[in-house]
Design a protein around this nucleic acid. Structure first.
Lengths: 225, 225
DNA sequence: AAAGTCGGCGAACGGTTGTTTACTGAATGA
DNA sequence: TCATTCAGTAAACAACCGTTCGCCGACTTT
C-alpha cells in the first residue's frame, strides 16, 4: 500500500520522530508540564520555531506519545488470552508480558504512569480513554465464559477494570525495581545491561502473580461460594 | 506541653502555612516540577526571597506536603479495622472512609496521586516511604487472624499491598468522579457544594466495594479451596 | 535599656521561556 | 521548465524564572 511517501514527507516524519524521541527521553527525569519546547528542539538540533510544523503544543506532543505508548497494546490482550491452558499459566503469561513490556519500553511506561494523573489535562484524558478501551477488550475477552456462569455485564466490567488497574500497578512496580539511570548509585555490579536489581524484579513478579492468583480465586467463588 | 511558642515563631509558622496552602492550591492544576517559587510567593503576598526562610527548594515544600497529606493517615487504619463486624461491613467502612477523605481533602489526595510517579525524586520517595509504612500497619492488623489460618508473613504483606494499592486506586477514581473546578463545564446544576456528578461517585463506590468483596472472597479460599 | 536575632523586603543579576516574523531553498506538480 | 509549496532558519520580543545581596525593623534575650 501507499506509494513510498515522497522525499518531502519522509524528511518531515523523520524530524517528527526525532522530536518524539527527544521528548520521551527528557520525560524520564521530569514531567510533561515542566518540559520546555526549546529543550526538546535543542536536543534534536533544530530551531525552536520548527516545533510548530509538527505540534501545536507540548500537550499535543504528549497526546501523540500516549497513542504511541498505548496504541500498540490493543492486540496484545487477545494474543495472551488465546494461549490459556488454565488459570496459572494465564497469570504467568500476563505477568511475563508486562515485565517484557517494561523491559522493552521503560520510557513509554514511565511516561504513562507519570502523566496518568499529571498536570496536563488533554494527556490525562487521552490516557484514560486508552485504558478504558483496554478494559473494554479485557471485558470482551472474559465475557463469554463469565456470562455463561451467570455473571452480569456490570460485574464483568468491574473485574476487567480490576485486572487493568492491577497491570498498570504491576508495571510501575517493575519500573521502580529496575531504575533506568538512577543517579546516586554510580553503576551496576553487573555491567551487562541497564536492568536493575534482578532479585527485586523477581520479587515484584512473584507478588504480582500471587495477587492475580488470589483475584482469580475470588473470581471462581463469586456468588457460588 | 510547650509554652505558647512566642510571637516570632507564631508569625513564621503562619506564613509557612500560607506557603503550603498556596502551593497545594496551585498544584491542583499543575505538577510540582512546573510549580514556580515566585508563583507561590505571589499568591501568598510575600517577597520571593522570603521563601528561603522556610524551604530550601520546591521539592522541600513538596516533601512537607507529603507528610501533611499522609501523616495523619496512620491512625485511621486501626480505627477502621477495630469496628469490624464481618467482611462486608468492614468493606463498606473502608470505602466510605476513602470517600470521605477525598471529599474532605481533595487537593491533598490529588497531590499524592499526581506526585506519586511525578518528576521530583525526593517527593516520590517520601510518598513511597509513607505508603510502605501504611502497608506495614495494614499487614500488622491482618497478621493475627491470617497467620492463625496458616498464612506466611510474605503472603500477608502481599495482601496488604494489594489492599493499599486498591485504596489509592479507589481514591483517584473518586477524584475523577468529582472534579474540583473542571473548566469547560461552567457550573453545577445543583449549586450546593462542589461535589461533582453524585451518580458517578456512587458508581465508583459500588465498583470498589465489589472489587474488595471479590478480593476478600479470594482471601477466604487462599490455599483452602 | 541595650544588644542581638531573624523574618521579610526590594532590587538587581544572568539566564531561559514561548511565540511571531520574514526569510531561504529544496522538493513538488503542471 | 517554471511557479508553487512548505519544512526549517535566524532574529527579535516581552515576560518570567531562581538566586543573591544588603538592609530594615519588630521581636527576643540579657
Amino acid at each position: 500500500m501507499s506509494h513510498t511517501l515522497g522525499v518531502r514527507q519522509a524528511q518531515k516524519q523523520k524530524t517528527r520522530r526525532a522530536l518524539l524521541d527527544a521528548g520521551l527521553r527528557l520525560l524520564e527525569d521530569q514531567s510533561l508540564s515542566s518540559l520546555g519546547l526549546r529543550e526538546v528542539t535543542r536536543v534534536v538540533g533544530v530551531a525552536p520555531a520548527a516545533f510548530y510544523r509538527h505540534f501545536r503544543d507540548m500537550s499535543d506532543l504528549g497526546v501523540a506519545l500516549v497513542e504511541e505508548s498505548l496504541g500498540s497494546l490493543h492486540g496484545v490482550v487477545r494474543v495472551i488470552l488465546a494461549e490459556r491452558d488454565g488459570d496459572e499459566q494465564l497469570i504467568d503469561a500476563t505477568v511475563e508480558a508486562v515485565a517484557e513490556l517494561v523491559r522493552g519500553y521503560p520510557a513509554h511506561i514511565r511516561f504513562i504512569a507519570r502523566e496518568r494523573h499529571g498536570g496536563v489535562r488533554p494527556v490525562r484524558e487521552a490516557i484514560a480513554a486508552e485504558l478504558s478501551r483496554f478494559a473494554d477488550e479485557v471485558a470482551e475477552a472474559f465475557a463469554p465464559q463469565l456470562t455463561a456462569e451467570g455473571w452480569s455485564l456490570e460485574d464483568v466490567r468491574m473485574l476487567a477494570e480490576l485486572y487493568v488497574d492491577h497491570m498498570v500497578m504491576t508495571a510501575t512496580a517493575f519500573l521502580e525495581a529496575q531504575p533506568g539511570d538512577q543517579p546516586g548509585e554510580p553503576s551496576e555490579a553487573q555491567p551487562g545491561e541497564g536492568a536493575g536489581d534482578p532479585e527485586a524484579v523477581r520479587r515484584v513478579a512473584a507478588t504480582a502473580r500471587r495477587q492475580l492468583l488470589l483475584i482469580s480465586l475470588g473470581r471462581r467463588h463469586w456468588r457460588t461460594g
